[in-house]
Amino acid sequence: MTRQTIMIDRPAMTSPARKAIRSLALILGVGLGLAAADVDRATAAEQIHPPRMDWSFWGPLGHYDPGQLQRGFKIYREVCSSCHALSMIAFRNLADEGGLTYSEEQAKTIAAEYQVKDPQPDDKGEFPERPGRLSDYFPSPFPNEEAARAANGGAYPPDFSTLAKARTYERGFPWFLIDIFGQYQEQGQDYIHALLNGYQEPEHGEKPPRPGLHYNRYFPGHWIAMAKPISDGQVEYTDGTPTTLEQYSKDIAAFMTWAAEPHLAARKQMGLKVMFFLIVFAGLLFYVKKSVWSGWKPETA
């Protein structure tokens, strides 16, 4: 077997080596600090952090507010849908539990207000337009990306289906660690809200790098192709909610979140049950393990 009796006398324990380790640790530590400082400067120049908002869907008990989603949907229909597709959402989803929670009848009515190309060819081999049904998907404003770009000065208005999850901003150290415990998953929503509120005159009177771009405080690089899409009072609300840009931007961001993550409420509810189950299970197993180990004696093994 191995050499078993090698002795230690503490003082002799090679103090030069220890010093080397200490100084190395110091170098690494300082480097880390420098780097962290550098990051903040780098990202500050690149993208301004959006303010953090309160969302009903944040956290372990998070869920959507159907009223808010319905308002957001109204904004989508009346404003956004002229450029932005919602291709992965079907009309049936409007009646889904945990989402907008329209009744099936309401969803059918909404579907019928759209003209949809039938996905099946008729007996002449054509795809006739007809009123939408529950199984149909939201029709897209443009047939393909090229057509969308051609109609929008070269810019492509992204599909809303996954957009809320596709946008984020750099959190930096140590926030990205704190976010694990804070369950902060709403960077995309905060960004969308900030973006809609972020249209302003260029801070230092800069000129757009090419015509047709608009200055936005929160857009990375500041120059965005989308003109300010919505202003106070543009969409009418029937439930007494204030018709302000601030409210609109929250409602549309919530609607986009639902579109990107329709099963969020079901997920968080199941999470609660699973956590309860596992914590009880861990406790039970721990006591079983303790009980069995405490019964061990060399003689019984």
């Binding site: 299970f281 197993l285 079983v288 009980s291 405490s294 019964g295 061990w296 019984t300």
Partner: peptide
Amino acid sequence: RVTATDDAHDPGRRDFLFLATGAWAAAG
């Protein structure tokens, strides 16, 4: 079979604990 002869461990309670844990695992 691991036999605990320790008086601190009431065999009835132990068996119940084992059974409850097994049932919990099966349900999971």
